[in-house]
């Protein structure tokens, strides 16, 4: 099918890009899991909502800003990214207030099932607003960066670099928020033990607000990057939800840093499956990349349900 031997480094490069997206998504899912204590099945569709919100803003940003660019991408793209992140953050807070908080009993199972409903509503609204077709942001096509191609023999586009760089910036900002600010410390304390945090006088409502804002914004960033790398599709978020869950479980539910690590590993594995297949390590090819993530997840549940970063037991 592919005549030329693709360099193994190419798969690694693809893996880093895909990992960035999964890491961003996994952080939000993990935050909700640890602080609000439920598996949020609407998280994938929240990514979609973020990606389409950004697409919507492109409609007015692009005429305003023209084609001025930075880092090889037009300026409007960065503003659209910010718009999408903001929109998803606001939407997830509203969803929490209107739907999750009033759920009777608010136990983790009732919330989980409600989140399925939320996922379907999100997707339906995307369908109704943008139609069912796949879209593009309209960022001009760029070739691979020449010097990388010459030195390493792999194709890396400027937009790949932007995705990875911005992910590193966002993750670092989150790390600083969690470790250096009072709010961040409160969030970590609540994630560790919600009851204890409440008893010791932490206003959990403030923490929950921050959690939805941060989780929503990062999910949207992941969604926009996924849309930039591939296509902006109404099912894009739901389709990778399983992979994001696998990342969170691999990292250990409730551990934000575990989610980052898990996201990186799962993202890499997902992109390396074809390579493993070539080398005869994996029995299946890229069509089963999601299935491989699933198998890893089940293996983790069997061997170490608390994940690689969680407590033993």
């Amino acid at each position: 099918m592919i005549p030329l031997q693709i360099s193994p480094f190419q798969y690694v490069a693809n893996g880093v890009v895909f990992s960035s997206i999964i890491v961003l998504a996994a952080i939000g899912l993990s935050l909700v899991y640890s602080i609000a204590d439920f598996a949020n099945f609407a998280h994938g569709d929240l990514m979609t909502v973020g990606a389409f919100s950004a697409l919507f803003s492109v409609g007015f940003l692009r005429p305003m800003l023209g084609d001025a660019g930075v880092f090889g991408l037009p300026l409007w793209f960065f503003l659209a990214l910010a718009f999408g992140m903001g929109a998803a953050a606001v939407i997830s807070v509203i969803t929490d207030r209107v739907i999750y908080q009033p759920v009777k009993g608010s136990d983790s199972i009732g919330l989980l099932i409600s989140s399925i409903g939320v996922a379907l509503v999100y997707r339906a609204l995307v369908f109704l607003s943008f139609g069912t077709e796949a879209e593009r942001y309209g960022v001009p096509r760029q070739g691979p960066i020449p010097w990388v191609r010459e030195t390493l023999g792999i194709a890396v586009t400027p937009r790949n670099l932007v995705v990875v760089t911005l992910t590193i910036v966002l993750v670092t900002a989150l790390h600083l928020t969690l470790t250096r600010t009072t709010l961040g410390r409160k969030m970590r304390a609540t994630a560790d033990n919600a009851d204890l945090a409440r008893v010791s006088g932490i206003r959990t409502s403030e923490v929950i607000l921050a959690m939805w804002l941060i989780g929503g914004a990062l999910a949207a960033a992941g969604g926009v990057f996924l849309g930039l790398e591939e296509l902006v599709r109404p099912r894009m978020g739901f389709d990778i939800l399983l992979i994001v869950f696998a990342a969170v479980i691999l990292g250990g539910i409730g551990s934000v840093y575990g989610a980052m690590l898990g996201g990186f590993v799962i993202g890499m594995v997902h992109e390396l499956v074809p390579l493993f297949y070539q080398w005869g390590i994996s029995p299946v090819g890229s069509r089963y990349a999601a299935a491989v993530a699933f198998v890893i997840m089940v293996a983790i549940l069997l061997v170490r349900p608390s994940g690689i970063a969680g407590d033993s037991g």
Binding site: A39, F41, S108, L112, L241, L242, A246, I249, Y288, P305
Partner: peptide
């Protein structure tokens, strides 16, 4: 059931969603 039923309820939820996708992928491919 073996990996999930010893754990919290939501693990089965996640794993079963995955199972559904895998089975669909197998039938399609």
């Amino acid at each position: 059931g073996i990996p999930t039923l010893r754990l919290r309820e939501d693990y089965l939820a996640i794993a079963s969603l995955g199972l559904a996708e895998v089975i669909r992928a197998i039938i399609l491919n």
